[in-house]
Amino acid sequence: MLEALLWGAVAAGSLVIGGLLGVAREWPDKLIGAVLAFGAGALISAVSFDLFEEGVQQGGGLPVAIGLTAGALTYFTLDRIVEKRVPGAGTALALGALLDGIPEQAVLGIGLASGQGVSISLLAAIFVSNLPEAIGASTDLRDAGRSRPSILRLWGVVAVVCTLATVGGFGLADATSGDFKAGINGFAAGALLVMLVDSMIPDATKKAGRIAGLVTVLGFAVAAGLS
C-alpha cells in the first residue's frame, strides 16, 4: 500500500510541477504548443500500448469497449457542462487530467497489487503527459484571470485525487476480475482520446503551428520506446 502511495505521488506530482511552471512566468505560445504536442504523442502511445492493448489481454475486447464508451461519453458530457460555466481550453485540460488520471493511476495500483511491479512505460507516459497538460492549462487559466493560488490549489486537489486512485486500485485489485480491470483501462483510453481531439491537439496546433505534428510523433516515439 505504501509503495502504491509513493508511485501514485510520483506520477501525480508532475501535475503540481506543471502548475508551478505554468504560473511562474510567461511562456511563449510556440513552446507551450510544442510541449502540449509532445504530451499528446506520449498519451497516444499510452492509449495504444498501456491501456487498450493491456486491457484486451486482461479481459477481452468487450469490457474494454464498454469502458471506452463510458470514458468517452463521461468526458464529453462533463466537458460540455464545465465549458458552459467556465469556458476555455485550460478548464478542459484540467478536467481531462482528472478524468484520465484517476483510471490511469488506478491501473498503476492494480499492477503493483498483482505482483507485476510498476509499469515504467505507463508511469513515464503519465508523468510526461501531465506536465504539458498542467503547464498549458495553467497558462490558459491565468490568461483567463484566475489567480495563481487558485490555480495551484486546483492542481493540488487533482494530484491528491489521482494519488488516492493509485491506492484505490491497489486495494481493489484482489476483489476485482480481469473484466473490471479491462474496463478501467478502456475508460481511461476513452476519456483520453476525446480530450486529445477536443482540447489538447487543437491547442497544440494553434500555439505551435505546423511543427506540432512532428513534435507529436517525437512524443509518441519516446513513450512507445519506453513501453
Rank of each mutant, 00 (worst) to 15 (best):
A94F: 00
N185Y: 13
D143L: 15
G117A: 07
S129D: 09
V222A: 11
I81Y: 10
L73H: 04
G213D: 09
T91I: 01
A46S: 14
P202H: 04
W155F: 15
G190I: 01
P132I: 01
V167L: 14
A40K: 10
L20P: 02
F180S: 11
G67H: 10
L2P: 06
R142F: 07
A37G: 07
I44T: 14
G71I: 03
T139D: 09
S119V: 01
T176F: 06
T163K: 02
A9F: 11
G225W: 12
D143E: 15
I201M: 12
V64N: 13
F180C: 03
L93N: 04
G209V: 00
L99Y: 00
V157D: 13
I44W: 14
V10R: 03
L15N: 11
F170T: 06
V215W: 05
R148P: 09
A134Y: 03
L122I: 08
T205H: 14
T216L: 15
I120Y: 14
V82R: 06
C162T: 15
L93C: 03
E83F: 05
G225I: 04
G60N: 09
K30V: 15
E53V: 11
L36V: 09
G209R: 00
A221M: 12
V160Q: 11
W155I: 07
G171N: 14
A42K: 07
V215T: 07
A191Q: 00
K207E: 04
G90W: 04
L123E: 02
C162S: 15
G169D: 11
R146N: 13
F49E: 10
L141A: 06
S138D: 05
E104D: 12
L193N: 00
A223P: 03
A70Y: 07
L122Q: 09
P132W: 04
A34I: 14
L51V: 05
Q105Y: 06
S48N: 12
V157M: 13
G13C: 01
G209T: 00
V47K: 11
M200P: 02
F220R: 08
R142Y: 12
S227A: 15
P103C: 00
P103R: 01
L51K: 12
S129T: 12
D140K: 15
L193M: 13
S177N: 10
G96Q: 00
I32T: 14
I120D: 10
A204L: 03
E104N: 01
G117N: 05
W27D: 10
G13E: 02
Q116N: 14
L73C: 00
I81W: 12
Q116M: 13
V23P: 05
R25E: 08
F49Q: 11
L108Q: 11
I32P: 02
W7Q: 06
G60V: 08
W7K: 04
L68V: 02
A40L: 11
S114V: 04
F170G: 07
A42C: 10
G145D: 09
A165H: 11
G169Y: 09
